[in-house]
Amino acid sequence: MNLSNFDQDAGLRRLHMMERIRAFEETARRAAIDEELVLGAIHLSIGQEAVATGIIENLRRDDYILSTHRGHGHTLAKGAQADAMMKELLGREGGCCGGKGGSMHIADFGVRMLGANGVVGANITIAAGAAHGIKLLGGDQIVVCFFGDGASNRGPFLEGVNWAGVFQLPILFVCEDNQYSASTLTSDMTSGNIADRARALGLRTTEADGNDVTALAATAAEITARIRETGTPEFLMAKTYRISGHTYFDPATYRPEGEAERMKATTCPIARLRETLSETGVSTDELDGLAQEARAEMDRALDAARDAPWPADETAFADVQDIGSPLQEAF
């Protein structure tokens, strides 16, 4: 990399965000395994932090994102508070969703994060619709929709991407290609190439190294500016790798021996950015300090979550519907 015009401040900011995402997930994993505090399955994005970080830094607070079952990184990067997120993972009062959604339904409408989704691919049409809403209301926001490589094999991928093209909507579809769909190698179950599908649907399509946060942020800056300017949808294929298992308890033995270790050594976006920052003169102490700060933040978030009460019993029936609410009649 040519370091002569490397923006060190931006690099440090990005490193801090990626460390926060990693620390959030490692803390959550520890809380799940050691303390059994996290109740349901959680999907970690360890190794994929650059995608959330590099893309979302280009968004405004009033831009929208939609995410997947693997959504902690996107949510944090959009500006959600770690302690509210941790409480949600523990099913506690004060969680982003009041303990009703957990990891797979994490959402923070305050920062316009319109939800993770427990149904693979389902967020694609909804995201297109959020962009449709923006267009109808005459807004200048944009939408970013994150989904996995595996999701591109579901029907809503075709319907949602086509929709955005037909109506010329201000949306960026980001396929976060970590090579796997649960325990299946996605390429084994995919005919042709995913980016070609987007091209065939008429979307301007960019393929990028999803583990190089510096380059990805620059690419995403251009793309998001263009979408805001033209109101035209685009597609970004971000190649990355899921260093951890599908869920926090998945040993991922279906991967060829040594693959994860080799990929971790060569592709980890945090390690790569640290190396670049070192080369530009940032001390190891300073780099380690960012990681420590992130870990301390997430330890505090876990402490707060551990101490938080369960949601009030009566909230089980709240926020279902106004008309015919189960608070009034459930039988």
Binding site: I126, A127, A130, H132, G133, P156
Partner: peptide, 17 residues
């Protein structure tokens, strides 16, 4: 695209329509 009609309308509803 029935799935997209329903899904997109939902997204647009969450966006304020």
């Amino acid at each position: 695209s029935e799935a997209a009609i329903m899904g997109a309308a939902f997204g647009a509803a969450m966006a304020g329509t």
